[in-house]
């Protein structure tokens, strides 16, 4: 997540050898090469990403007519949106999902510390095992989770039944559905968190622990005074990446719930709400307004991250 290196730094780096061949430099302004090299990509990004963002922002200020076409309607969409209980419902669901998935970070911290034990056998086998759900196709794993959560013959309710609890119809009960999906989200992202934490742990010089041990520091003290402070930037990075990814919840929800689910309207995430309005109800203006709200939330999170990260870098 390095911030883009500013051009001046690059110029300074290039400046050093320029002194020897100062006269040759201006000739090598690279002519048409940059156009050839960067042109296709920049055009593609401009046409298929940058312009669409501008256009979507415009859509959010328009209302679609019944017979095609749209008219400018100012902030009407936003007014309607902020009065729409579904916005708050889907925001709340997204937050529940995010919260549950974030629980994976402490679990990942614990598992990663085990994984990093010196001389642990099968370490790479464990890594593969835990990482498997992260690379697996969400819609394909959703199939099996649907059955595991099935109210009549699912494993979850079978196991709950063994201890005398009658489980709900997880997927079709509002409230239970988003929890069920969140657990799958936790399952699928745990491996990623674990690997990131393990990499952070590996970067702590072992000498620190050795010195601490010589000084008689307890395991807990070592954890508190060495691991925690040195791992903080890693955890913070993970936090931000996890929050941003969780706010994009769609695939798992769509595939686990299915689109004929009675609990659907109460279980939507923000992105699902956007999809529903934009591509099922075909209300382009309204969906665009939802998109802008999501954009604002992600933007604020990213801005907060940059600010905190800079403070970190300066404060040491």
């Amino acid at each position: 997540m390095a911030s883009p290196t500013s051009a001046p730094g690059r110029w300074r780096a290039a400046g050093a050898p320029a002194d020897e061949g100062g006269r040759r430099r201006p000739l090598r302004r690279d002519g048409a090469w940059p156009l050839l090299f960067a042109g296709p990509l920049v055009t593609g990004i401009a046409v298929f990403y940058l312009w669409p963002v501008v256009q979507t922002a415009w859509f959010s200020l328009t209302t679609s007519e019944v017979f095609g076409g749209s008219t400018f309607s100012g902030l009407d969409n936003y007014r309607e949106l902020f009065a729409d209980p579904l916005l708050y419902r889907s925001l709340a669901n997204t937050l529940v999902y995010t919260g549950v998935v974030l629980l994976g970070i402490p679990i990942a911290l614990y598992l990663a510390s085990l994984l990093n034990l010196p001389g642990l056998r099968f370490a790479s086998f464990y890594r593969v095992l835990y990482f498997l759900p992260y690379v697996a196709m969400p819609t394909a794993v959703a199939m099996v989770w649907r059955v595991i959560y099935n109210g009549d013959f699912g494993l979850v309710n079978h196991v709950l039944g063994l201890v005398g609890i009658e489980g709900p119809y997880w997927i079709s009960t509002p409230g239970a559905a988003i929890l069920a999906v969140s657990v799958v989200g936790l399952w699928s992202s745990l491996g990623f968190s674990m690997i990131v934490v393990a990499a952070g742990l590996k970067n702590i010089p072992p000498e620190y622990y050795e010195a601490a041990e010589l000084d008689g520091a307890s395991r807990f003290r070592q954890f508190r005074s060495i691991t925690v402070p040195l791992l903080a930037p890693t955890i913070f990075f993970l936090l931000v990446v996890t929050v941003i990814a969780s706010f994009q919840l769609f695939d798992l929800l769509y595939a686990i719930l299915g689109n004929a689910n009675p609990a659907l309207s109460q279980s939507m995430s923000l992105v699902y709400f956007f999809y529903q309005e934009g591509f099922v109800s075909n209300d382009k203006g309204y969906a665009a307004a939802i998109a802008m709200v999501i954009f604002a939330i992600i933007g604020l999170t990213t801005a907060l991250q940059f600010r905190l990260q800079r403070r970190w870098a300066q404060g040491g």
Binding site: F48, Y49, W51, P52, V53, Q55, T56, A57, F59, F247, Q248, V271, F274, G278, K284, A287, A288, I290, A291, M292, I294, F295, I298, G299, T302
Partner: peptide, 11 residues
């Protein structure tokens, strides 16, 4: 830094 929803409709 832009979530995909912000360009999907237009794409």
């Amino acid at each position: 830094m832009v979530p995909s929803q912000a360009y999907l409709l237009s794409q």
